[in-house]
Design a protein around this nucleic acid. Structure first.
Lengths: 204, 204, 204, 204
DNA sequence: CATGAATGAGCGTTCATTCAT
DNA sequence: CATGAATGAACGCTCATTCAT
């Protein structure tokens, strides 16, 4: 409860993670130097090793932290229907991506990059997010919002993949994500498909 | 006309690229060592530099080579409708991914990874593939196969993203891709959406 | 104030430069290995790069350091006449060369060797020394010590060249430089020339 | 006596040496590549090793060859007096240096550079030239052209050093060497010294 | 706890030399 | 003799990690 921790809730660890996020985002995992992170954090190089055992661990903890924050932001439970929840997820996601392009790049870039242990770990993070979507879809299906025979496994991956590809467009091609147009269009395509005579067109 | 050249059409360069594909797939760009690639190719380290000016160039040439092979496989032009063409793309894609899991991992893994120049280059490769899909969609839309107001930009990215996410499932979660079930389900969802009353359910 | 800093004023940098001087002298620029310099200095290879950005920089800084020391030794301004000043320069120079044969070898050896940037730099170092001599000669000429029409440009290069050639004799042929005999003889030849009837022989 | 050897007296070896001279002059010993020399000579890399056992040997043979040519050029024996002979040596030397700046640079640059065995060898080449000068001086002294007590050892090195320093000025500072002015001035200073009242001023 | 000087394993790249053809 | 594809020893430099203070 000293003044330090009041200034920086979470203490040095928080400071380091924020500096790491900034540097890793800008440089990527391999080109980011521990020294630069330390400088960005305004501390000594050795201090980082008081809180993290290695560069990899720092990277992973930073991503966990971001994910946690990201998930925390993804507060969708208050919405009544699965469709609305998914809409909310997409909306929040694109907003997050658009407002944190560097972090977004980092998340997209490391979708499956990196080696060995860390790759596995990352995969699990990704799956976790997919499972959330699967959960929402399953509930929606059970509630009769979707086809009875909806393959939630595939559907969840369609959503996740679409979101990632469009996020890539946002950060790499500067696709505008503002307003709800993007989400609206995406949702319409996901719900009603590419075919004519679907969606708004109802049978007499 | 010696047995060597018969065994390895394309000569040493081909051997090196194949060894590089194997090692890069297993280790990723940064952890892959030139020496290991050389050993894998059964040649001396220096020989690689007779054919490629740098590790980066080797990496890029290898990916180009794979892409070329991959695109070559993607022969879909003979199919009549856009829907059939896309189905064919997906089918061939998943087959390719399932049969070349290491290469698949490499393509997925490097979707957006890597830094600077090489990342830019990779991005362009990816966009190229998306543009192919966009082209097919546009033609299909013009031919009246899809909604008149289909946003091909978003639709292409939905397809690309879905494909990548499901490819990830194939290589990382061992999702079975055999038969046409996966493609059928995916296509159904893409064309008709998640909603009930779409697709197979026809208006009286 | 620990014993370390007392032992090595100037710190690690000084230690490294001294080790570098030793190794570069013995092996020359290209055959000298950074690792050997580090070992000679009793430190780790990486430490050198904490103080110098590259092998070239280390080489140049070492030569600068030697030159500085050498120039510092060349304190001749207190002598009244140009002739005395030049005598003093020569005396000090030969003493320095004789007492630091390794360094001498290095200075002579690299008179014009090395490529590109570093050669240019070395050239400038050499010219600087020649300009000092030119300056002394010009003052002496103005003061009436020499021929009125003395070509100081050529004269300075005669002195510099003679000194280098004789320094080479000292380090390579073990020419004795002790006492003032060498300087005396050299000065006599420079001032009075090879001809008979010059110098001590005065006209009735 | 085949057409080859008629075209190139001395055969391939001569061609290689000439190519080596060109490349070594331009790049220096270390930056010169055997491959480039081979290309310059219009032959295969391996062929060089049919005539020379190593890069070092090629370098030494090339220098020997140049020196031989250079000495051959230095035909001064027909001149009557030692002074005239030395004048002739200087004249020819500066002409040679001025007309072959690249080779000149090479000769000057490698005065004492290079390591170990090759350095020793180079030293001997240099001494050989100095001994020629010493010989001329000694004869001149005996013939009464110079001071009776002329220290030919030092005098020879003064000449050699002066010549090298001025050659450096020619190739590095673009000092003009044309006409006989430079030789004239140099000789005057060497023979009569820097002092006033020497040389042209004759006793009544 | 905090620091940053010191470390050295590790790797991409070069190029003189060899040798099968 | 001639070749040039193949080689691998060698080295400069980086940077994550350690540890004495």
């Amino acid at each position: 409860m000293d003044s330090e921790s009041r200034e920086y809730p979470g203490g040095k660890k928080r400071i380091i993670i924020e500096a790491a996020a900034k540097v890793f985002s800008k440089k990527g995992f391999h080109k980011a130097k521990i020294e630069e992170i330390a400088k960005e954090a305004g501390i000594g190089k050795g201090t980082i090793y008081e809180y993290f055992t290695s560069k990899e661990e720092l990277f992973k903890e930073m991503l966990s932290s971001i994910s946690r924050e990201y998930i925390r932001v993804l507060d969708f439970s208050s919405h009544p229907s699965a469709v609305e929840q998914i809409k909310e997820i997409l909306k929040q996601h694109f907003n997050f991506m658009g407002m944190n392009k560097d972090l977004a790049r980092l998340i997209i870039a490391n979708q499956n990059a990196l080696n060995g242990e860390i790759r596995q770990w990352f995969l699990e993070q990704t799956l976790e997010k997919i499972y959330v979507i699967e959960g929402v879809l399953e509930k929606g299906r059970a509630a009769g919002e979707f086809k009875e025979d909806l393959n939630v496994y595939i559907a969840a991956r369609i959503i996740f993949g679409s979101v990632m590809a469009l996020s890539g467009a946002i950060v790499h091609e500067n696709l505008s994500y503002e307003g709800e147009a993007l989400v609206q269009d995406l949702m319409d395509l996901l719900l009603n498909g590419f075919n004519k005579n679907n969606g708004s067109v109802q049978c007499g």
